[in-house]
Simulated assay, not measured.
Amino acid sequence: MLSLVPMSFAMTTQNLFDKPDMFTQIIMIPVVVTLLLAVCLFQFKKLSSRSGNNAKQLPGPSGLPLVGYLPFLGRNLHETLMELAKKYGPIYKLSLGQRQCVIISSPHLVKEVVRDQDVTFANRNPNIAALAFSFGGKDIAFSPYGPEWRMLRRIFVQEMQSKANLDAFYGLRKNEVKKSVRDVYAKKGNPIDVGEMAFSTVINMITSMFWGGTILGDRATASSRNGDFRVAVSELLAIWGRPNISDFIPCLARFDLQGVDKDMKRASKWIEVIFDSVIDQRMKEEKESCQDTKKKDSKDFLDFLLEFKDEETGISLSRAQIKAFLAVILSPFNSFFF
């Protein structure tokens, strides 16, 4: 009886070693899991130390692995940031997912960033929605600081927003207001959508300055076309303000988990069609009248953009840049109507 126990043990041991594949799998599973956890921990510590060195070991809440301080922000972001400023001082670091942010809350530091060291902090980090709307960040708002950005700024400040050009469009703005007043009188006794009327008036003024005419063509169809445009812009702005996890964890951007990139491209497609039709029509008109030596009495913004596109400067505006230029200028104004 006593001799059977070691014999059974020896037979069991021998059977285990006769099946090395099963034995190896049993042993290797916890080993592999442990190694993976060690590698993940090492990478996390490496990234944390790197971001800490870049931020010069600023104070701030530690947050959680991978998501950082995102779960603790709450609805009132400004109140959360103010509470953290009271605790950590006027400048502190905040981990939002894989993004390392530096928060400043004193007038002196704000002046240092936006004025004294503005070139250093000129570049922005556009989110997924902004990249989709601005045709890959090709506009004046999200383009990186450099020769192209300075070119766009020069066009915007010297050509489009100069006092002489704005004064030259005074007649157009005045005529659009008069047309709206006449429309109100013509609808005497009928209900009027004031928001729709204001939107139509202002959008017609802006587009007259941009390309010398309205996006509506015939004013008889103004209501329906304005309504479509308003809905498209309203949806676009709503998507733009939607939180997107891919903005904080870039490795998830390729999957577009919340569909922000897809929705933004769909919402901006209608506006892009308008821009393309206007640009094509203007280029066709310019091509047909190239033999005519008589110049136009006045230029609109699209004329300036297309003329600069044709200049042999080595750096010219592409069609995508022109559309992004127009879209970003139009959209902030539209937000006041929603």
Score class of each variant (00 low, 15 high):
G68I: 06
G68E: 06
G68W: 04
Y69M: 12
Y69I: 08
L70D: 10
L70W: 02
L70M: 11
P71L: 05
P71R: 02
P71K: 07
P71G: 01
F72Y: 13
F72Q: 11
F72M: 12
F72L: 09
L73A: 11
L73Y: 03
L73R: 13
L73V: 15
G74L: 05
G74W: 02
R75Q: 14
R75P: 03
R75F: 07
R75W: 07
R75E: 14
N76P: 01
N76E: 12
N76C: 12
L77C: 02
L77W: 05
L77I: 04
H78S: 13
H78Q: 14
H78C: 11
E79T: 07
E79H: 13
E79N: 10
T80E: 11
T80P: 03
T80M: 06
T80H: 00
L81A: 01
L81R: 00
L81H: 01
L81V: 00
L81S: 05
L81Y: 00
M82S: 14
M82H: 10
M82K: 12
E83I: 08
L84V: 08
L84I: 03
L84N: 05
A85T: 13
A85D: 09
A85I: 00
A85K: 10
K86C: 11
K86H: 12
K86Q: 10
K86M: 06
K86F: 04
K86Y: 01
K86S: 09
K86T: 02
K87A: 10
K87P: 03
Y88M: 09
Y88S: 04
Y88Q: 07
Y88D: 09
G89C: 01
G89S: 03
P90V: 03
P90T: 06
P90I: 00
Y92I: 02
Y92G: 02
Y92L: 08
K93T: 09
L94G: 02
L94M: 08
S95W: 11
S95D: 13
S95H: 14
L96S: 07
L96M: 11
L96C: 10
L96K: 10
G97W: 06
G97M: 10
G97H: 09
G97R: 07
G97A: 04
G97Q: 00
Q98P: 02
Q98A: 15
R99F: 12
R99M: 15
Q100S: 15
C101Q: 12
V102H: 05
V102C: 00
I103V: 13
I103W: 04
I103K: 02
I103L: 10
I103C: 02
I103R: 01
I104G: 02
I104R: 00
I104T: 09
S105T: 06
S105N: 06
S105W: 00
S106D: 05
S106C: 05
S106W: 03
S106G: 04
S106P: 07
S106L: 03
S106N: 04
P107H: 04
P107V: 00
P107R: 07
H108E: 15
H108P: 00
H108N: 10
H108K: 14
L109N: 06
L109I: 03
V110Y: 04
K111F: 05
K111D: 12
K111L: 07
K111W: 07
E112L: 13
E112D: 13
E112K: 14
E112P: 00
E112N: 10
V113G: 03
V113H: 04
V113C: 12
V113D: 09
V114F: 15
V114M: 15
V114H: 15
R115P: 06
R115T: 15
D116H: 14
Q117S: 12
Q117M: 11
